[in-house]
């Protein structure tokens, strides 16, 4: 494995998160790491260790209570919601445990949805590239199918293509194979790995599956909201 030498695409510095309430709950504390372009990083840890909180912070869905987060060198801590939404749309792709494809739209339309959100005709410009991605994953015959006409594995592959539609710098995946059987899980993970490697895209994946994590470039382990380890693996 070659160690990337580019400047970090994502950098966290002493990030912490406390959920307010009658009894404030600390979910993260002193998390510091950076991720370079093209890296495939797994975040692992037990339930309640802060994995999802960290992913939400990285995806600009939430703001840290302390510390700072930089995306492409720009401090993105505490952005206005609309600006955070714009950055998510243009720079990030999301994959969730469940596909959450819009049932009213075809597979192709679902994949083009992040482009359509931009409202600048990007969906028209990107359609050719997206169709090529469908071909790449063998889903061209299912372009016009509705989500309910696809199998579970196909739905999740379409969800992966959707995360790639805007050609994002970072893909954030939350248990992307957690809802699939082992055969489909292996296929979907393999696909995610291949496509992002070819496109030199950064992936940060939250998983509780140690075997899956071992197939990434790097594993960050969280324990009780703190980074326990940050280990480079073989991928």
């Amino acid at each position: 494995m070659s160690v990337p030498t580019d400047p970090p695409i994502l950098a966290l510095e002493n990030v912490g998160k406390v959920y307010p309430g009658a009894v404030p709950t600390r979910a993260l504390e002193g998390v510091t790491f950076s991720v370079r372009a093209g890296e495939f990083v797994a975040i692992v840890g037990a339930s309640g260790s802060g994995k999802t909180t960290l992913l939400n912070l990285l995806g600009l869905l939430d703001s840290p209570s302390e510390g700072r987060i930089a995306l492409d060198g720009r401090d993105v801590t505490g952005l206005w919601p609309a600006e955070a939404a714009r950055l998510r749309r243009d720079r990030m792709g999301f994959i969730f445990q469940f596909h959450y494809l819009l049932p009213e739209f075809s597979a192709l339309e679902n994949v083009l949805m992040p482009c359509r959100l931009a409202g600048d005709g990007r969906d028209l410009r990107e359609e050719g590239r997206v169709r090529a991605l469908f071909a790449r994953v063998g889903l061209t015959p299912k372009l016009d199918r509705r989500p309910d006409q696809l199998s579970g594995g196909e739905q999740q592959r379409v969800a992966i293509l959707r995360a790639l539609a805007n050609d994002p710098r970072v893909i954030l995946a939350d248990e992307p194979t957690g809802n699939l059987d082992s055969r489909n899980a292996a296929e979907v993970f393999g696909l995610l790995r291949e496509i992002t490697r070819e496109a030199q895209r950064t992936v940060i994946m939250v998983t509780h599956d140690r075997d899956l994590a071992a197939k990434t470039d790097r594993v960050i382990t969280l324990r009780d909201g703190r980074m326990e380890s940050d280990t480079a693996v073989g991928g």
């Binding site: 995806g59 869905l61 919601p81 609309a82 939404a85 714009r86 950055l87 998510r88 749309r89 243009d90 990030m92 999301f94 969730f96 469940f98 959450y100 819009l102 049932p103 949805m113 992040p114 959100l117 931009a118 959707r162």
Partner: peptide, 16 residues
């Protein structure tokens, strides 16, 4: 609810 949440995660603004 879920589709709306995912759309927002993908970058849909509250205005949209």
């Amino acid at each position: 609810y879920r589709e709306i949440g995912i759309l927002k995660a993908m970058g849909a603004t509250a205005g949209q």
